[in-house]
Each structure stands twice: as C-alpha cells, then as structure tokens.
C-alpha cells in the first residue's frame, strides 16, 4: 500500500484495517504521533488527512491511502504549523508533552480552515484531552494565533 506522509510517498506493508496510528508508529517509525486511549477520545493520535484532523487510532489505513497525511514530524514544513509551534513555545504550553502533538495538529487544522477563529470556534475545535491541564496555556496561544 502507498501512503503520502509529510509530502513523501511511502510503501507500507500492513493489513488494510490496521489503524493508521500503528502504521505511522510501527511501520514508518514516526513516534511523534501518540497512542493515548485507542478509542478516538483523547486526541493524542491526531494527524491531518488532506488538512482535516483525524483520530488515527481508529482510522483504518486503507481509508486514507489517497489522502495527504501530515504528522507532527511534518508540522514545521507548513507555515501555519510553524506559527502554531512558535506560539506553543512562546506560551510554554507543554508540561509532560504527551498530548501536544495532537494539540498542535488540531490547532493547525483549525487555523488553516479559519484564519481568525472566534472563541467559540476555538473551543469547539480544541477538544483534545490534556491530563496535565495545559488548557489555559493552549487558550492563550490560540487567542494570539487567532489574531492572525
């Protein structure tokens, strides 16, 4: 099967119903995408498929074969992604950091879709779980990013 990951074509040998997460982590060795709950609840496994955030832990790899996948490893190749990372650093968002790949990708997807999202739009999009409680820092970073 051929996948497009961070702009590169990659051949993978995996059963078609293998979750994208495990193909990314185990076949491609890109471990920035995290396994958290395995049930599409926490969002740690978020990647972008044609720019939309998806929960890779429940997404069969065969269903995204024709889409461009962006993982955290490719985030800084995207100008919006770069801005998000800078805001994350500026606002010192991460604590343990385990959820932050998913948070950064979710933020990037929102800003690519809506350059200046309102508070409600941000709240609706930024629903990934953070056990450390970095939500306020995320909110501050998003507020700054939403100013464009």
């Amino acid at each position: 099967m051929e996948l497009t990951i961070n702009g590169k074509k990659r051949q993978v040998d995996a059963a078609p119903d293998t979750p994208l997460l495990w193909v990314i982590r185990e076949e491609l060795g890109l471990t920035g995408t995290k396994y958290g709950c395995g049930a599409a609840q926490c969002g740690a496994c978020t990647v972008l498929a044609d720019g939309r955030p998806i929960r890779s832990c429940v997404m069969p790899v065969s269903s995204v074969a024709n889409q461009a996948i962006t993982t955290i490893e490719g985030i800084e190749e995207d100008p919006v992604g770069r801005r998000v990372v800078e805001a994350w650093v500026e606002h010192q968002v991460p604590q343990c950091g385990y959820c932050q790949s998913g948070q950064v990708l979710t933020a990037t997807a929102l800003l690519k879709q809506s350059a200046r999202p309102g508070e409600a739009e941000i709240a609706a999009a930024m629903v990934n779980l953070c056990r450390c409680g970095t939500y306020n820092a995320i909110a501050d970073a998003m507020q700054q990013l939403a100013k464009g």
Partner: peptide, 18 residues
C-alpha cells in the same frame, strides 16, 4: 523557558512507549 518546550511541541521527545 522550559528546556523541552520546543521538542514537546514538535513531537521530538521520546517517551518509554516510543
């Protein structure tokens, strides 16, 4: 600034599971 803020914002920190 935290030493690991950038690496944690770009998926570069390696946890045991990785």
């Amino acid at each position: 600034p935290r030493l690991d803020a950038r690496d944690k914002s770009t998926g570069k920190v390696t946890y045991n599971i990785d």
